[in-house]
């Protein structure tokens, strides 16, 4: 018989209670159970970074966690950055302004990686930004505009 476990967690400040099978990945839980499709799924083995979310304010790959492990934890996805599309988070706005995305597939993962990074490094150098981005693959931009956008965001968010 399939095991089913009850979990209660916060996602973007909203509390959810669900029954899950232990093998359900957190990435699939967010997308399929909660309908939060902003978290993108790329490689599903922890290499591409597209599914990066915040677990208790620290970045993590949601494809490398089971939903049951998020029980009692505080999750933030890209949908949590702003509730109003006309009023973007300063980091999102900087990506728009500096053309930090093309197809946009990698963008949510990059944004969620950069949120804690900029908190810990409010005035990063280009080298530090590139190092912080090393766990997120982008196949369109060549990264230059992403680096520019993060730099711009750091200036706006001061």
């Amino acid at each position: 018989m399939t095991q089913s476990i009850s979990i209660t967690l916060k996602v973007n400040d909203k509390e959810y209670k669900r029954e899950v099978e232990p093998r359900l990945l957190l990435s699939d839980f967010l997308r399929h159970e909660l309908g939060l499709t902003g978290t993108h799924v790329g490689c599903e083995h922890g290499v591409c970074g597209a599914c990066t979310i915040l677990v208790d304010e620290e970045s993590a790959r949601s494809c490398l966690m089971f939903a049951v492990q998020a029980d009692g934890h505080n999750i933030m996805t890209v949908e949590g950055l702003t509730k109003d599309k006309d009023n973007l988070h300063p980091l999102q706005h900087a990506f728009w302004e500096a053309h930090g995305l093309q197809c946009g597939y990698c963008t949510p993962g990059i944004l969620m990686t950069m949120i804690p990074f900029l908190k810990q490094n409010p005035d990063p150098t280009e080298d530090e930004i590139r190092h912080a981005l090393s766990g997120n693959l982008c196949r369109c931009t060549g990264y230059q505009h992403i680096v520019d956008a993060v730099k711009l965001a750091s200036e706006k968010m001061k």
Binding site: G49, T52, V55, E58, S59, A60, R61, L64, F117, G135
Partner: peptide, 9 residues
């Protein structure tokens, strides 16, 4: 060791 996201877990 890998990337910050990996080292967080």
């Amino acid at each position: 060791i890998a990337h910050p996201q990996i080292r967080n877990r």
